[in-house]
Amino acid sequence: MSARALRALVRKDLLVELRGREVVPSMAVFVGAAFVLFRFGLGGTDLAGGTRAATGMLWVAIVFTALVGLSRSFAHEREGRTWDGLLAAPVDRALFWAARTCSTFLFLAAVQAVALPAFWLFFLQEHAGPSYPVLIAAVLLADVGIACLGSLLAGLASSLRAREVLLPALYLPFSIPLVLTAVRVTTDTIPPQTGGFDTLGRLGFLALYDTVFALLGWALFEYVVED
């Protein structure tokens, strides 16, 4: 793997986003709108399901927010025909997946830097602050999983005519284990809950999920982008 090529591809994604402002603002608007709808649709902060219901909403909103960004991933390059230039280059095609995984992770983390405090303000302001180290570990591990899985499936869907339908149809079922685990870990971080060893086990599961989809993405992307 060429570190220089990977850096150049990630830099390209970041520069294109910085100047085009197409993905991150759309994701931020989406997650903000979702929180507002949840807040008013469910009648305030006193949710029937307690903190579990609140963290469930958080992760459902994050998974759909990632989908907003992933739906433009690769499709943008295929439509602009810049994809042909990348395919003709003498690098392992898995590098394109790795770079897109990195940039998706960074976009998601940037949106969450605003969305997570907003979420706490909207739904959990009456609770004590969370256990930050565990929360940050859970968010980062879940984001890596979303980026690995999402970039692989976005690459697959981008070559197909029905990609707007196919991407969510593939991505959402595969993200269920990640969402369930992320919800439980996030709930564990909110006092008076304490997950103890269970929380460690759940973080371990998220790391395993990331590893599996990182290996699958690396191994399969070459075949996914074949025309």
């Binding site: 060429s2 085009g20 602009g80 042909d84």
Partner: peptide
């Protein structure tokens, strides 16, 4: 061994001329 210029210029519109080539310089080492 091959250099390919397609019917479309294969350039990223939001990158400068120099940045477009820097990307490919990295890909072609």
């Amino acid at each position: 061994e091959v250099g390919y210029a397609g019917h479309d210029p294969l350039a990223y519109p939001d990158l400068t001329a120099s940045e477009n080539l820097e990307l490919y310089a990295a890909l072609y080492a």
